[in-house]
């Protein structure tokens, strides 16, 4: 038996292998490798971009969160400011009202005092007048009484003269 036949390539098989392999390569390239590799790399691309998008979203989320916090802080500060302002306004209104009321009250008190004063004056004047009239009447009656005798009249004159001396 010839053992070189194992290592002698037969022309027929070389011929058919070459043709078959080229055919197989072309067909598989067009109908299998391109779609499969295309799909795989497309998927890898989409996974990559999806991951990137997720990362982006995460970052955006963080931004949003910090934004939110900032806005919240601002809102809180604004609220505080508003409350403070309101308190101030309230206080000012109250104090103003108090002042107004005090002024009003003072005014009323003053008017009342003035009225009382004038009433008092009037009353005093009235009393004075009545006292004067009364005194005059009394004096008239006393003088009439005293000047009814000669002695009495002389005595009076004397007293009066004495008073003048004293003065």
């Amino acid at each position: 038996m010839d053992s070189t036949q194992f290592v002698t390539p037969g022309f027929g098989l070389v011929f058919w292998t070459a043709i078959t392999f080229i055919f197989l390569l072309l067909i598989l390239k067009k109908f299998a490798w391109k779609p499969i590799l295309g799909a795989v790399s497309d998927r890898e691309e989409s996974i990559k971009s999806a991951l990137a998008a997720a990362e982006e979203a995460k970052k955006e989320m963080q931004n949003l969160q910090s934004d939110n916090e900032r806005i919240l802080k601002e809102a809180r500060a604004e609220r505080d400011a508003m409350l403070k302002e309101a308190r101030e306004i309230k206080e000012s209104i109250v104090s103003e009202a108090k002042q107004q009321a005090k002024i009003e009250a003072d005014k009323m008190v003053r008017t009342a005092q003035a009225t009382i004063e004038s009433e008092k004056k009037a009353a005093v004047a009235d009393i004075k007048a009545q006292v004067a009239t009364l005194s005059v009447d009394i004096a008239e009656k006393v003088i009439k009484e005293q000047l009814s005798g000669k002695d009495k009249q002389l005595k009076l004159v004397e007293d009066m003269l004495g008073d003048i001396k004293l003065n």
Binding site: T8, P9, G10, L13, T17
Partner: peptide, 9 residues
């Protein structure tokens, strides 16, 4: 396992 086949490839 045929040398013609491996030769061609």
């Amino acid at each position: 396992g045929n040398i013609a086949f491996t030769f061609t490839l």
